[in-house]
Each structure stands twice: as C-alpha cells, then as structure tokens.
Design a protein around this nucleic acid. Structure first.
Lengths: 232, 232
DNA sequence: ATTTCCGGCATAACATTGTTATGAAAGGAT
DNA sequence: ATCCTTTCATAACAATGTTATGCCGGAAAT
C-alpha cells in the first residue's frame, strides 16, 4: 500500500468534507446528496451520519471550511506601506476568492439550501453571527485594515467596527450581484463598479480623493485584467 | 354563494401564488411543498402542474411577484424637493420592504432554494439579470433617483447607471447581512450602518457632506425608531 | 338539444431524497 | 482471551417532486 493510498484510506472525515466541497463547486448545491457523496468516497451514506450527524452537520462544516479559506485568503495580503492600498487590496482579494468559489460563497451566507432542509424558519445564518468563530476572524481582519486607514487619516468620527461593517455590506452585495450575473456584459465589473464603490467608502472614511485615486491606480496596475471564472 | 366565495373559488392560479407567498413568509422555503400548498388551497398537487408546470415554475412566479412588490414599494416614495432626500428615502424603503419580507427577498435573489432543486449549476439568478423585466423596473427607479442627484450636483464623472449599481450593491449586501443576523444586538443597525453607508455613497456621487447630513437628519426625524420585524 | 371535445383536477403510483434500524467487523482496553 | 466501542454496509422507512391515468364539466359544433 503506497503512502498515497494510506492517506486516502484514512481520515474519512476529511475525505468526505473535501469531496463535498468538490461536488458543490462542480455541480452546485443540488448535487450535494448523501448517496452521491458516499459513492464519491467509496463508502456508504452512513459515513455521513457517523462523522457529521447528517447532511445538515456536513453543510455546517462546509461553511466553516469556507470561512477558514476566506480568512486565509485575506491573511495572505501582506500589509504594506499605505493602509489605503491594503484596504483596497483586501477588498479585491475578498472578491477574487468569492468569485473563485461562488457556490461555496453563497452557501456560507445561507444563500442557498442544498437539500431543502436548510435556510428554513430561522433566517439567522451561521457564520456571520456569533455561531462560527471563523466568520468573526475574517471580519476582524477587515476591522484592523479599516482601523489603520482611520488612524492614518486621523478620523475619529466613526468607530472602525461600524465602518468595517459598511465595507463588508458593500462588498458582500457587490459579490452576490456579480455572481448572480447582474453585471454581465458591462465590461470588467470590478473596474466599473467595485473600485468606484470602494473608493467612495475609503474617501468617506477620511482618505483624500487624490490619495485614494493614486492607490487605485497603483493596485490596478498590479492587477491582471479580464480574468475568467475558474469554477464551473 | 356569496361573492367572496365565488372569488375564492375562482382564479386558482392566484390562490396558489398567494398561498405560496404566505407559506414562504410564515414557515420558510422548506415549507414550500407541493402537498402542503395543495392542502392550503383545498386542491390536489396537480393544480401546481397545470398552472405553473411544477414547483420550479411556481417559484419563478413568486420571484416575479416579489420584484413587482418591491417596485411598487419604491414607486410609493413621492419625489420631493431635494433629490438627495429622495435617494436616501428610496434606500430606506428598499430596506424596509426587504425586512418586512425577508424570506421573499432572499428567494428573489436566488439566495435560497426551496426544495433543493433550485440554485443549481447555473448561478445566474432570474430577476437581477435580463430574465425578469420586473427586476429591471425596480433598478430603473434607482437609476432615475441617482441621476437626479447627479444632475443637481453637476456631477459628470460617473454614469448614473454605474453609480446606481453601486448603490444597489451596498444596500443589497447590507440587507442580507441584517436579515442574516449579523447586526443583532448592536442597537438600530439602520442608524449605525445603513445611514452612514448611504451617506458615504451620496457624498461620493457629488453631494456635499453638510447638505447630506441635513438630509439625513430630515429623514431620521420622520422615521419611526426601533421597529420590529413583522414577518415571523 | 345532443354530441363532441378539451381543459382542469383528483387519485394513485413512481423515482429519489434524507434518515434510521440492524448487525457485522475491526481495533483497542481490561 | 474477552469485551466494548467505533465504524460502516445493508436495507428499510418517510417524505418529497413528479407523472400516468381517468373522470368531470362546460364550451363549441352540428
């Protein structure tokens, strides 16, 4: 037995979780079924129940993993000299990650219900509230970036937490509309909508329009143009 | 037979649609089932197929009706003297309507999939794209409001369509996060997040901060405080 | 006025889903 | 060596969307 096979046979929980994320990305939440998942990993459907308690528990773990990956993606942005550049780059990284994993992103925010058993009476979504600490961690990264900008611009009129929540609202809404296809056929929606939107918010936080424009040009120069969606 | 009964017996399609919206608001998308719907209107499940072709067709019509109601709610805002006041009031009406019908709002944006057959492989959401003209109508109302502000402030740097799309992104994201419970326990989230967010965008469009602040105070004075969610 | 035809819908069956009951097998603890 | 716990395969169950079938009633045609 090769080591690859040994790691493949072991850790059935991880295999289930990764297979579930793969199926979700490939064929959407409707394909996230117990029998298909069991076939994918070469086991029976009972494995889902022993390791996750059911499809609901599995989806909860998928959401957690989604927030972990989002947090990692945002951590990868190295803080540079200009906090405004960092904040804008953070927003772009957030958008890039969401559009690389659109199905996962929608599932994270309860935007989709795989078996019809989810997203029910209670509208509260695990992850954005206090339920999943991984969600708070990703938000905390945004709060620190906003705080640095406000400190650099001597802005004290607003709490960083409040301003960060506004940033998240704007980017979140933009991302969902772009995923939904609302911006299809209008050129590069990032350049057309997201960058102006972020600019307005950064200026509203306290940065000067001139400085923000310089930061936007700096980021746009380092950014590849006309990328395509990788996930099916 | 009283006239009320006659109208109740007739128009089975409308009865199905209204019952579906009622069930959705009361018990969530998971309760949107063919058998329950048939029981609710006193018919068999076949009625769903004769009138809508299946549950998918019914959901499409629910989404259309949702955009119609959203459009009506936004039409009810009478244009006043100040376009900035109008735009802010439009945003608040949008938010109020969404939080009065949170389940419907999420369904409209493909945010939820009742039955697991929706929101599948294709991420494009009917309504925000070109599929449903009712969705375009609601967005058009926002474009005109933004256009008036930009005309009043002599702003020509940006297209109204682009600025309106940024507004929609921001409000849409805020609404979804508020529905998801992200702002729970932080006081009035409208005052704390939505109003500052709208303020930054209005200023970014070209209005002066002072004038915008006056408009915000004017609207806040006319707005009832600490409203509760009406839908279960 | 009778006949014909067609749309609307109830009944019942079907395929597919999540779930659970049962038991076997494997591995470690005593 | 024995027992106990965990893990999971098999199979059955409940509930879902869907479809096949046929009845019924009214409208149109003769």
């Amino acid at each position: 037995m090769s080591p690859r096979e040994s790691t493949a046979k072991a850790h059935p929980r991880s295999r289930l979780l990764e297979a579930a994320i793969r199926i979700l990305a490939a064929d959407g939440p409707e394909a996230l079924q117990a029998r298909r998942l069991a076939t994918e990993v070469g086991m029976s459907t009972m494995a889902v129940y022993t390791h996750f308690g059911g499809m609901g528990g599995l989806i909860t773990e998928i959401v957690r993993e989604g927030f972990i990956r989002l947090g990692r993606r945002m951590e990868e942005i190295p803080p540079g000299d200009d906090p405004v550049v960092d904040l804008l780059a953070l927003g772009l990284a957030y958008r890039d990650h969401a559009l690389d994993n659109p199905q996962l992103y929608r599932l994270m925010f309860g935007v989709v219900s795989p078996g019809g058993r989810q997203g029910g009476k209670d509208l509260t979504v695990a992850g954005v509230g206090n339920d999943l600490p991984e969600g708070q961690a990703a938000f905390a990264r945004l709060v620190t970036a906003v705080t640095r900008v406000m400190e650099a611009t001597d802005t004290r009129e607003e709490e960083p937490h409040s301003a960060a929540a506004q940033f998240w609202s704007a980017i979140h809404g933009y991302v969902l509309l772009e995923i939904a296809g609302f911006f299809d056929g209008d050129g590069d929606p990032v350049e057309r909508y997201l960058v102006p939107l972020g600019t307005k918010l950064v200026v509203g936080i306290g940065a000067t329009p001139e400085h923000t424009a310089r930061c936007v040009r700096q980021i746009a120069a380092a950014r590849p143009r006309a990328e395509s969606i990788t996930e099916a």
